[in-house]
């Protein structure tokens, strides 16, 4: 559409199957049933906030994400009104230049924006930060991540083919939202650690689906983090040829507790991983003719080892999950930086 207000369409009945048929004719939807966005449902979602508030313009379509348009997609995804402020904050983050959403949508890589919910809103709006946090079974996580994807498809135009060139796509492109387990973090919340001092915040990191790290037996940080480093140091990730890339390391509470009880800070974990997640320079030079490396990395000799990222600050550490001893690594697409913004809970 090209006018200011979204079009209203006739739907034969208030039914998800009827909506899918209607939307299919326009090339809309993610292939799963959606909640029909009737004016009444959208008004309820908006909860009295300004529907015409322009939040962002998203490429490649240059779609204008007003609060109403965001609410429409939140209804479609199955969100409740309590989750709308999180979706709005995520759209603000998507529009940050350093995130490079144009590139994220255009790349052949499988990158999807991982939305991490921090602080009070994670609890008040019902997000899961504990057991199975990356998985199914929680409406807030599932519907918020899906709303972000639907906004990318509908407003930004990131449909496979004309607006999303991903070679294989990926399951994280359906819905990719998790809450930080701040209550079990020995280092406090992640958002404050990157300078966002807000009661509620979100982070977007455009990368791959989580890579599992399993350590059942270690009572010292080093053996656990060596396994994390092993998951980081692989040739197939974009981090290997692009040294400015970030990693997100989602430690489970038990692995984090082992590190903290040994006196390790969040920064110590990043520094250790920076020094242990390395590959031989010769191997990387053989694998990649084109390397977007920092100058100091380019100067290394073939028999040196090189870190998988150019600075320890690119290794972001937070706590996610419940009981058990499985952590995860989320590699980056590469030409993107994570963004953390406050959530305005009205």
């Amino acid at each position: 559409m090209t006018g200011d207000a979204p079009l209203l369409l006739d739907l034969t009945e208030d039914d998800p199957c009827a909506l899918m048929q209607l939307y299919d004719e326009h090339g809309w939807g993610d292939g799963l049933p959606m909640v029909p966005p009737t004016p009444q449902r959208v008004e309820t979602m908006l909860a009295g906030t300004d529907p015409d508030d322009k939040i962002a313009v998203l490429p490649p379509r240059s779609g204008i994400a007003t609060r109403r348009v965001i609410a429409i997609n939140a209804v479609l995804a199955g969100c409740e009104p309590a989750q709308l402020p999180v979706v709005v904050a995520a759209v603000r983050a998507l529009a940050s230049p350093e995130l490079n959403v144009r590139g994220v949508n255009a790349t052949t890589h499988c990158a999807a924006p991982l939305l991490i919910v921090h602080g009070d809103v994670a609890e008040s709006a019902g997000y899961n930060s504990g057991l199975g946090a990356f998985g199914p079974g929680n409406r807030a996580n599932a519907s918020t991540g899906r709303a972000v994807r639907l906004i990318l498809m509908h407003v930004a135009g990131a449909r496979p083919g004309p607006g999303d060139a991903s070679t294989q796509g990926g399951p994280a492109k359906y819905s990719y939202c998790v809450a930080e387990n701040t209550a079990r973090s020995p280092w406090g919340g992640y958002a404050a650690s990157v300078g966002v001092e807000s009661a509620s915040a979100v982070t977007l990191h455009c990368g791959e689906a989580p890579h599992n790290v399993h350590d059942m037996e270690s009572s010292d940080p080093a053996p656990i983090l060596d396994k994390v480093a092993s998951a980081m140091a692989t040739l197939g990730q974009n981090n290997a040829p692009i040294s400015s890339s970030e990693y997100f390391v989602a430690l489970c509470p038990e692995h984090a507790a082992v590190c903290a009880s040994a006196g390790w800070t969040r920064g110590h974990v990043s520094s250790y991983l920076f020094n242990r997640a390395t590959l031989p320079v010769a191997e990387l030079r053989r694998a990649f003719g084109l390397r977007a490396w920092a100058p100091w990395q380019q100067a290394l000799a073939d028999d040196d080892r090189v870190s998988m990222t150019e600075h320890p600050d690119n290794i972001k550490v937070l706590v996610v999950g419940g009981a058990g001893k499985h952590s995860s690594v989320i590699p980056s697409w590469g030409m993107t930086k994570s963004v953390t913004v406050a959530v305005d809970v009205q």
């Binding site: 004016p39 779609g63 994400a65 348009v69």
Partner: peptide, 13 residues
Amino acid sequence: EQTKVYAPDGAVG
């Protein structure tokens, strides 16, 4: 009954 629903794409800048 027939009802109305919004298009999800919004205006183009």
